[in-house]
């Protein structure tokens, strides 16, 4: 599969949130303000790219030669959690304000099924190294794109006239449903 079509499909057609339906928790939880959503998307991008490279290398150079591919899930989770911790340390030192505003949502990336999903999909789809790089970068970029768009929509919704039963999370979920219809068929 050509790299460009892989890149575009991982951002739009096979979007990690709206089509594959992974990583919904920060999508709903960290998207009230567009600034938070943008930082969240960037953190996920960093974690996904780093973890994909490291897990791919460990899988194909350690697990496959020793016939221990059953350790895949445990090993991926270990590496992802360490990458999240590493990213948190770097953020705390170099961008402390962002670290404070993001607060609890950073460690939640460790249990975010989108990150584990992307790393496992790299293995399941039998990607080469460059394909893996393009796919992880594209998927996480798609994540950033969708969470940012969603945050801007939510900010706009807050200032409009919604009935009390629907305001807050219900209207957000409806918006997400409409977005996923658009991404599934018309993009």
């Amino acid at each position: 599969m050509s790299l460009i079509s892989l890149f575009i499909s991982s951002i739009l057609a096979q979007n990690i949130i709206l089509t594959k339906f992974l990583g919904i928790c920060p999508f709903i939880g960290a998207s009230n303000k567009e600034k938070n959503a943008f930082h969240m998307g960037l953190s996920v991008m960093l974690v996904v790219t780093l973890s994909s490279i490291i897990t791919y290398v460990i899988y194909y150079y350690v697990l496959v030669p020793t016939n221990t591919t059953y350790l895949r899930t445990t090993m991926f989770v270990l590496v992802i959690a360490s990458m999240v911790q590493l990213m948190e340390l770097l953020l705390k030192k170099y961008l402390p304000k962002i670290h404070q505003t993001m607060g609890l949502y950073l460690p939640l990336i460790a249990t975010n099924c989108a990150v584990l999903g992307i790393t496992l999909l790299n293995i399941n789809n039998d990607f080469t190294f460059t394909q893996m790089l393009v796919f992880s970068f594209g998927s996480s970029l798609g994540y950033l794109l969708v969470i940012y768009i969603f945050a801007t929509i939510r900010e706009r919704l807050e200032t409009s006239d919604i009935s009390k039963a629907f305001s807050g999370i219900p209207i957000a979920l409806l918006t997400a449903a409409i977005m996923s219809l658009v991404f599934a068929r018309y993009l």
């Binding site: 350790l71 090993m75 270990l78 360490s82 590493l86 340390l89 705390k92």
Partner: peptide, 27 residues
């Protein structure tokens, strides 16, 4: 058996990296 060895080694390497990065960055 080999599985135990692999996971232990990986965990030790990751722990070493994290502790050193933490010590250097947050003096």
């Amino acid at each position: 058996m080999i599985g135990i060895v692999i996971l232990t080694v990986l965990a030790l390497i990751l722990a070493y990296v994290l502790v050193n990065v933490d010590a250097k960055l947050n003096e």
